[in-house]
Design a protein around this nucleic acid. Structure first.
Length: 264
DNA sequence: ATGGTAGCGTAGCTA
């Protein structure tokens, strides 16, 4: 099974790029974040016509939004909301083979890494803390789970271009790294990308739009992740980042797809 | 220290 996660930053504006990815990679399951569209206006037909006819959505107007687009039947799906909001950041699909995919869009957290001074940062930490409490009550470490998405945290030193210069920057602060690590440990999730790419190697999935030349400066961060529970870890056969998609014309997303292959 | 870009939707918020 091939599974891809991609923060698309408007699925309607970049539908042509999504279709290009489907053509090039032919994934079984594509998980999108920041679709920025209500469910009724999601471009279903484009996916259905190409064979990805099973779709689970949680979208809203203008912001956030997650989608799971699948070639495999989706037996059931759920939408979860956190922190008392209805902000469309978590959709779940159950797939054949008793695999459950959780597609997440974790709050970005604003600019100031202090929950006392910045409500957005407090929300980001609260969102993760709620999930950390929820996982062990709702699922088991021996379930066959895949957690993907834009987690908006780069946990390892080589998940950012400069650990030293990023230590006080939201996405790489110690409190965020510690919180994300606690979520990872809540069910013993295995980091699929780092299962294949050594921690000593720089690895990014996001580059700011604000750089003059994203490729030359290469000030990236690894914000997008794929985790699996221990029963699925032996099935991992490959994981890679489609860095080239950051340059796709005419208007790339600031995130690139992460591709993971699981043996049957 | 600051400003740099992008999407939605048409002002200002979010990232």
């Amino acid at each position: 099974m091939r599974l891809i996660t991609w923060n698309i930053n408007s699925v309607r504006l970049r539908l042509d790029l999504v279709l290009r990815l489907l053509e090039e990679e032919s994934p079984d399951v594509l998980c999108l974040q920041e679709t920025k569209v209500v469910d009724d206006l999601f471009p279903r037909a484009a996916f259905e016509e190409r064979g990805w006819g099973h779709i689970a959505l949680a979208g809203m107007k203008g912001y956030n939004g997650v989608a799971i687009v699948s070639r495999l039947p989706i037996d059931a799906h759920d939408v979860h909301h956190w922190c008392g909001r209805q902000d469309c950041r978590h959709v779940v699909a159950r797939l054949p083979g008793d695999i459950e995919v959780h597609n997440l869009y974790v709050p970005s957290g604003g600019d100031v890494p202090d929950p006392e001074k910045n409500e957005k940062f407090a929300h980001k930490l609260a969102f993760l803390d709620e999930m950390i409490a929820w996982w062990p009550t709702a699922r088991r470490a021996d379930d066959r789970l895949v957690v993907v998405g834009d987690l908006n945290i780069a946990p390892l030193e080589n998940d950012v271009w400069s650990h030293r210069q990023m230590i006080d920057v939201v996405s790489h602060t110690p409190i965020e790294v510690e919180t994300l690590t606690r979520m990872q440990r809540s069910l013993g999730f295995v980091d699929a990308l780092r299962h294949f790419v050594p921690e000593s190697e720089k690895l990014y999935t996001w580059w700011s739009y604000r750089a003059r030349d994203w490729a030359a400066s290469d000030r990236g961060r690894r914000l997008d992740h794929v985790w699996v529970t221990p029963p699925l870890a032996p099935a991992l056969t490959a994981a890679r980042v489609r860095r080239d998609a950051r340059g796709w014309a005419p208007k790339p997303s600031d995130h690139v797809p992460v591709v993971v292959d699981l043996a049957p």
